[in-house]
């Protein structure tokens, strides 16, 4: 097990190294010039050249890559070309909103989705099953930003129950923090709920047709116990897998949700950086995201051994 974890951590480093090279080349070979954006539209070509020289953007690509990767290996993701602030500091400032949004979405989505999936499988073929599956198809089909606008219109503009936008740090009160996150979490979580609910239903239907479930029923095991203790645990592996895969969905959804709800998170940071060609920020955030994604998948793989002790690494 330990050697497996070490091997996986090593492969994580390899994946991140490949991501680093790919992102660097993609960014520097695609059109765009941060110096021209910094200088502004009224700047002369000479002024732009001056800024480019100062920022080291005129150096050959391999020189720029070695310089960047050298800093990364020392834990320094560089400084923003525009604001001069260290990338790690900028990411640090944005971490709480993004983590709050992602965690709240994850908790709400997983709780609701598994409940819906179990319920739909238990009541398979009934109106409850059909209604839940219709909701999940809709949830998966409607884009996050459309859901976001509809929620804003209904709950913030018409009913005035919740704020339209923004983020209140946890340190300024749990009430404000939660109020700002309710609508974005629902908007972001809807597709996630749909995905997990459908997999849960399918996996539960498989398990519920197994002989041991029939035996449990024959022995008079209560429904709640049969569903949660016997069936759900055995249906767990595909559900955990899809939760892990869904993290990628969550990461891409965070970018859109943070924009629609004006949450100052990492998603907004990277979108703004792309528009400005702020290379150090884009490179740094993508590296961090890729690391998180690989580690989440490692966690998912390790969770299998907890759910199903027959699995060994």
């Amino acid at each position: 097990m330990l050697s497996y974890v070490i091997r996986r951590l090593f492969s994580t480093l390899l994946v991140m190294a490949m991501v680093a090279i790919f992102v660097f080349l993609l960014l520097h070979l695609s059109p765009g010039d941060p110096a021209a954006i910094i200088a502004g539209d009224n700047a002369t070509p000479a002024a732009i050249d001056g800024i480019r020289q100062k920022l080291g953007l005129s150096d050959p690509l391999p020189v720029q890559f070695v310089r960047w990767i050298g800093h990364v290996l020392q834990g320094d993701l560089g400084v923003s070309i525009f604001s001069n602030e260290p990338v790690l500091k900028l990411v640090g400032q944005r971490l709480e909103p993004t983590l709050s949004l992602a965690l709240m979405t994850l908790v709400v989505a997983v709780t609701l989705a598994i409940t819906f999936g179990v319920l739909a499988a238990w009541k398979a073929g009934t109106w409850i099953d059909r209604a839940l599956m219709v909701v999940s198809v809709v949830g998966f089909s409607v884009p996050t930003f459309v859901v976001g606008y509809l929620l804003i219109y209904l709950f913030a503009i018409e009913l005035r129950w919740l704020p339209v936008q923004g983020y209140t740090p946890m340190s300024e009160g749990l009430d404000g923090w939660a109020r700002n996150l309710v609508l974005p979490s629902i908007a972001l979580g809807l597709a996630y709920i749909a995905l997990i609910a459908r997999i849960t239903r399918a996996s539960m239907l498989d398990v519920l047709s197994e002989d041991y479930i029939r035996t449990a029923k024959a022995k008079g095991v209560a429904n709640q116990s049969m569903l949660l203790k016997h069936a759900l645990k055995n249906a767990g592996v595909p559900i955990v897998t899809v939760i892990g895969i869904g993290v990628a969905l969550l990461i891409s959804g965070v970018v859109i949700t943070e924009t629609v709800f004006n949450i100052p998170g990492i998603g907004r940071l990277v979108v703004d950086a792309i528009a400005k060609r702020d290379y150090p920020i884009i490179q740094g955030v993508i590296l961090i995201f890729s690391g998180v994604y690989v580690l989440v998948n490692l966690l998912v793989d390790l969770t299998y051994t907890v759910i199903d002790p027959r699995i060994r690494y």
């Binding site: 804003i152 503009i157 005035r160 339209v164 936008q165 923004g166 629609v260 004006n262």
Partner: peptide
């Protein structure tokens, strides 16, 4: 000065008095 990228959200926030 808030950096709010989405035009729809800008207008909604203005209407809501935020």
């Amino acid at each position: 000065m808030e950096n709010m990228a989405d035009p729809q959200t800008q207008v909604a926030a203005l209407q809501a008095g935020e």
